[in-house]
């Protein structure tokens, strides 16, 4: 690990100024991903700017009935927050499906969004990786590929974004508030994380110096039912092979609306717009579930080790839709 300076400004604007002024500076919040990556030698910042004093750590109701979540709110507190459990249960469920009790106590809302999209080769400095070292090649294409992305990947990178929380935020159409050197901006969470293209070294659309200050949720959709389902290789404390966050509105045994996002399939949380489009106006039947899931996965590209993800995802989405519409069939 390379030496670094450590500062802990009291205000977000000071933190932004400090990181903006120093190309080698990085923000530090809970540290659960960054400290690990410092140890692994994946990143070597010259300065860490600790933002835990500078960030809002409260959950507040907004004037429009939505909710603002300060970027400093720990994952555990957010999952346990009574208003989140009651009004946005899919978000609580997603958070509780991620990491461990200790990690959720440390990790923040902003840090969870900004954890690196990664694979085993990204975390191993002895192997080529375009994300870690642009232009060096992708070891995962021909290597251990069970976790590789099946949607939106490129020849440069097939890593997947590991967050559960972000998948639920995508289904909820959350917005990410960001403070940068030129002021504030708001970014829809669907679009906050990037697909790899030819520049997999960038996980998000943020520029150097921009700081996530809050996540805003629109008011809950009246009458919507929601759930989060995570499929993994052990019962707890493992990344998703695939996960699904889904909200559905049904009237007279027809889908009025559906919002579906997948984890584990792509470089970013994957909003399933095609499946949603198929479901809107369709009857609540097994055939609809299947047609919707097939439509979303039609452009999946699989390699030697990860073709299982396509039927797994189709079956998981169908199962989630079946569960959510049990009373409507």
């Amino acid at each position: 690990m390379r030496p670094f300076e450590y500062t802990r400004p009291a205000r977000a604007a000071e933190a932004v100024a400090a990181v903006t002024a120093d190309p080698g500076a990085r923000y530090l919040a809970g540290g659960t991903n960054l400290v690990d990556h410092l140890k692994l030698g994946l990143t070597a910042p010259t300065a860490l700017v600790d933002v835990r004093d500078a960030l809002d750590d409260t959950v507040r109701t907004l004037a429009d009935g939505g909710t603002s979540i300060g970027a400093g709110v720990p994952n555990s507190d957010l999952a346990a927050h009574p208003e989140i459990r009651r009004r946005y249960p899919v978000l609580s469920a997603a958070l509780l499906a991620g990491a461990s009790g200790q990690l959720r106590n440390m990790a923040t809302t902003g840090g969870n969004l900004l954890q690196r999209t990664r694979c085993v080769y990204f975390q191993d400095v002895t192997t080529p990786c375009n994300k870690r070292e642009p232009g060096s090649g992708c070891s995962a294409l021909e290597g251990h590929g069970r976790d590789n992305a099946v949607l939106g990947a490129s020849e440069f990178c097939v890593a997947t974004h590991p967050s559960d929380m972000a998948v639920a935020l995508c289904a909820l159409d959350a917005r990410v508030r960001v403070l940068g050197p030129d002021g504030e901006r708001t970014i829809p969470v669907n679009g906050f994380h990037r697909l790899p293209g030819a520049t997999p070294e960038r996980d998000t659309v943020l520029s150097h110096g921009e700081l996530v200050t809050a996540v805003e949720l629109p008011p809950p959709v009246p009458g919507a039912r929601s759930t989060y389902r995570k499929v993994r290789e052990r019962a707890s404390y493992a990344f998703a092979l695939v996960s699904v966050a889904a909200l559905v509105q049904v009237r007279d045994s027809q889908f009025v609306d559906a919002r579906i996002a997948f984890g584990g399939l792509a470089h970013a949380p994957w909003r399933a717009r095609r499946a949603e489009e198929v479901l809107r106006g369709r009857p609540v039947t097994e055939e609809s579930f299947q047609v919707a899931a097939d439509a979303e996965l039609a452009e999946a590209r699989t390699g030697r080790d990860n073709s299982y993800k396509v039927p797994l995802t189709v079956n998981t989405l169908a199962s989630v839709l079946r569960e959510l519409t049990e009373e409507d069939r």
Partner: peptide, 13 residues
């Protein structure tokens, strides 16, 4: 009173 992992916490923080 919160359980955390001391290996991922920087002492300086």
């Amino acid at each position: 009173d919160r359980r955390i992992l001391a290996c991922l916490a920087l002492a300086v923080a």
